[in-house]
Amino acid sequence: MVVVGTLKPRVTDWRLVVGSRLDRVRADLVALGPPDPLDQEGQGWREVAEREAAVVDDMINRGEPRWRSVASWWSGWHIERAWRSLHEAEIAAVAAGNGFLGRLPGLKARVAENLPEDDHRRRALEGLRPGEFPLAVEREIVVDALRAAFDASDFAHAGSRALRNKLIATSVVLFAVNTLLGVLGFVDPRMIPMCVSSEKLPTVCPSGRGAGASDVWLIQVLGAFGAVLSAVVLLLRRRPSLSPYVMVGYQALIKVLLGAALAVVGVLALGAGVTTGLIGVASQAALLVWAVVLGYGQQIATRLLDSYTDRVMDQARPLPRLEGQR
């Protein structure tokens, strides 16, 4: 049956990462060899791994009707379902064999990535010694620690998605505000005056020919240009991330839109005489330069957002840090 109006799955970073780890799970299952008839619990875990691997395969290869793709992108349900099922498959693949304690160093490193040092499940895993407990008990210790670690990673994914959606909503609001300011200034330049005057200096307008309908738009463009400079700095210092949600584009968009709005507000403040005695605008060129500077000034407000986003993205990393990384 042919489904009309569906989208083929895109090749995205998170699909590549999930797909490669899914191949690793299947390779681990093959390496286990034939099931041990005396280990019924291990056989059960093998079936769980195969079932969850099938779910992951469906999530990364499925197509959706176009009208549903936007809702799926917003909710991120297919991304998070793929990661959760992948984590369950990885846990089951580890628990399916009876030689998983040979992988204990790697398991400890993965758990230490997401659980604090005082977590009892992490401490139990790190204190585990081969042969100290029956196989069933050792298996439960490993499974509990891995589940807790992966749950922390999955919750971090949900947190990064929520942050992404907030950034998008904020961008929409800023875009609407900037558009409204530009339209009001175009309809009646006196409504949002962009000219700056003082007692000792002549009146200066962005267009250079008195108040004009395009003054607000011009100031917004220059303010956005100043914000672009700070967005370039953000891009240069941004570390590569394999998180399924990439924030840097939305952060840059907010900087640009906020820079445009702050440039308008700043020029209004100059025209209102707020900076009298401190800043004097003697020419059109000086006024336009100040619009760029005011647009760049949004960096002060967005620095906290950048720091918070960095913390969220650090928690949402799907791959463990290498030894020595911070």
Rank of each mutant, 00 (worst) to 15 (best):
L22Q: 03
A93Y: 01
L104Y: 05
Q40P: 00
G127Q: 15
E41L: 08
V137P: 02
E47S: 10
A49E: 00
W83L: 13
V30K: 11
L125Q: 13
L32G: 05
E50Y: 00
A49L: 02
E64K: 08
G42V: 01
E80Y: 08
R21D: 00
R81Y: 00
E126S: 08
L29D: 01
H87Q: 12
D118I: 03
E126Q: 12
A53D: 03
G42Q: 03
R24Q: 12
D57K: 02
V94Y: 04
L125Y: 12
N61C: 06
G63L: 08
E126N: 09
E64R: 13
E140Q: 15
G76Q: 07
A49Y: 00
P116V: 06
W73E: 15
E88K: 04
D119Q: 11
D57L: 05
V94L: 04
A109G: 04
A82G: 06
D58V: 06
A92K: 01
G127D: 15
V30G: 04
A54I: 02
E50H: 05
I91Q: 04
D28P: 00
V56G: 05
V137M: 12
L115K: 05
E132A: 15
D36R: 09
L107H: 11
R26N: 01
N114Q: 14
G127A: 15
S20M: 08
E132G: 05
M59T: 04
P116L: 09
M59W: 01
G127H: 11
D36P: 01
E138C: 10
L32M: 06
P34H: 12
E113F: 07
F100A: 02
G63Q: 05
G33P: 06
L32H: 11
F133A: 13
E140C: 12
G76I: 07
R81M: 07
L135M: 14
R110H: 05
R66H: 14
W45G: 06
A95W: 00
A54K: 13
R68I: 04
E113T: 06
D39I: 03
L115D: 08
A31N: 06
P65Q: 14
D36S: 11
D58M: 10
W14M: 08
A96I: 03
L86P: 02
V111I: 06
R103H: 11
E132S: 15
A92R: 01
A71K: 13
V25P: 03
A112C: 11
W74K: 14
M59C: 14
A54R: 13
P116K: 11
K108Y: 03
D28M: 03
L38N: 14
F100P: 00
E64H: 12
R21H: 00
L115E: 07
D28A: 13
G19D: 05
E88F: 04
R46V: 01
P105K: 10
L104P: 09
L101E: 14
H78K: 10
V111Q: 09
R122H: 10
N98C: 07
P34V: 12
P65Y: 12
L104N: 06
E88T: 03
N61W: 05
L115I: 08
A71E: 14
R110S: 09
I141R: 13
R84M: 07
S85A: 15
A112V: 08
E140A: 15
V94G: 01
A136W: 13
E113W: 10
E117T: 13
R68D: 09
G106W: 06
F133D: 12
Q43G: 15
M59Y: 08
A31L: 08
E117G: 09
G33M: 09
H120F: 15
